Computed example of a mutant assay.
Amino acid sequence: MSIEVTNISKNYGTQKALDNISFSVKKGEIVGFLGPNGAGKSTLMKILTTYISADAGIATVNGFDVNKNQLDVQKSVGYLPEHNPLYLDLYVREYLAFNADVYKVTKSRIDEVITLTGLTPESHKKIGQLSKGYRQRVGLATALLHNPDVLILDEPTTGLDPNQLVEIRDLIKNIGKDKTVFLSTHIMQEVEAICDRVIIINNGKIVTDKKLDNLISADATQIIEVEFDKTVEDILIATIPYIVSYKNTNGSFWELTFFSEKDMRSVVFDFAQANGLRALQLNLKNKNLESIFREMTKN
């Protein structure tokens, strides 16, 4: 296994950041690690990259124990933290040369990662002159310098505009053809576009770990959008059989959530008939990762 996590726990004072979590990642997988803010994502990534230690449990990267074989782990991992640490006064090539010396890799590798990450047009500039997207490319180039087997990326597309986001997404997907990629993000479309598998964590515990296709097809969450011909009070909406949650989106428009494999539009129609209402629109909203994520991370 590229990554093996067994019964890992981590506390910050009285706060339990990670609560006895376990999973493994095979070589060549691209895994999305999802969760709300404060769920424990960055904490686990810091443990896997040896920045901090767990309070209990065992974690290995490429077979190396993160506590006993820290240097071997660091050689095996390329890490892009959420806040990409860069020296803004250095030129791109100067910064990469500095890191190449740290990793003891040949200078020819600098040209390779510049080409791989699409930095060539900006490689003559100071990092401080680069856009956010190109700064992220510098971070990725640095993470790839020593040609690691595993890439751990914490929010790699935060703050990017739509064009930059697509470029970095495509870059990660291309890199994932040869390496194991473990990434954290809040952008569900990004996960749907590049990940093979999804692990969702909430309050320090894993709430699901499935192949992306299986997660979406197996989830029984159903969202129905309905427009009634009259204003309806919340207290009446709450009486609809099997309803899990509801939201008034605009006047007489409602978004109703059910947990059932049966098409619940008939239930909503019968509810309207029984209460002297007409359903002017009644649409089954397609399930996606975002709706599944919301349901699984409700507190």
Rank of each mutant, 00 (worst) to 15 (best):
A238H: 03
Q222H: 03
S260T: 09
D263Y: 08
I240W: 01
V267P: 05
F259Y: 15
S260P: 04
Y246E: 02
I223D: 03
G251S: 08
F269M: 14
V244N: 12
I243R: 08
F228N: 03
Q281D: 12
F258L: 07
E261G: 00
I224P: 02
V232P: 07
N248M: 07
D234I: 06
G251Y: 05
Q273H: 09
Y242P: 00
F253L: 14
I224N: 02
A279Y: 10
G251W: 01
D229V: 00
N275G: 08
F253P: 00
G276Q: 08
T231I: 09
E255M: 12
A272H: 11
G251D: 03
Q281T: 15
S260H: 10
I223V: 15
K262N: 15
L282I: 08
S245T: 12
K262A: 13
M264Q: 15
M264W: 09
F269G: 04
I223R: 11
Y246D: 00
L282V: 06
K262T: 14
A272K: 09
R265N: 02
E225F: 04
V268N: 10
I224K: 02
I240N: 05
S245G: 11
R265A: 04
F253A: 14
L284G: 11
M264F: 09
K262P: 02
R265V: 00
D229A: 01
L280R: 14
T239E: 09
K230Q: 13
T231A: 10
V226G: 01
F269A: 15
D234V: 03
K247N: 12
I235E: 14
V232H: 04
E227I: 13
L280A: 11
F269T: 12
V267F: 03
G251K: 11
I243G: 05
T231S: 13
M264H: 12
D263A: 05
F271M: 08
E233Y: 02
T239A: 04
G251C: 06
E233A: 12
S252K: 13
I235W: 04
N283S: 13
P241Q: 10
F228S: 01
F258D: 09
S252E: 12
S266V: 15
N275E: 07
E233R: 10
T257G: 00
K230F: 02
F258M: 08
Q281Y: 14
F253H: 15
F228P: 01
E261N: 13
T257M: 05
E225V: 01
I224G: 03
L280G: 08
D229R: 00
F258G: 10
T221R: 14
N248I: 06
L256K: 07
N250I: 01
R278L: 12
L284Q: 15
F253T: 11
A272W: 09
V244L: 13
T231Y: 10
N250L: 04
I223P: 00
E227F: 07
T239R: 09
I243L: 14
Q222R: 11
V267D: 02
W254T: 04
Y242V: 00
S252N: 15
F228Y: 08
K262Q: 14
A279M: 11
L280P: 07
A279D: 05
I235T: 15
Q281S: 15
L256H: 04
R265L: 03
V268W: 05
P241Y: 10
L277P: 07
F271Q: 06
P241L: 07
G276T: 08
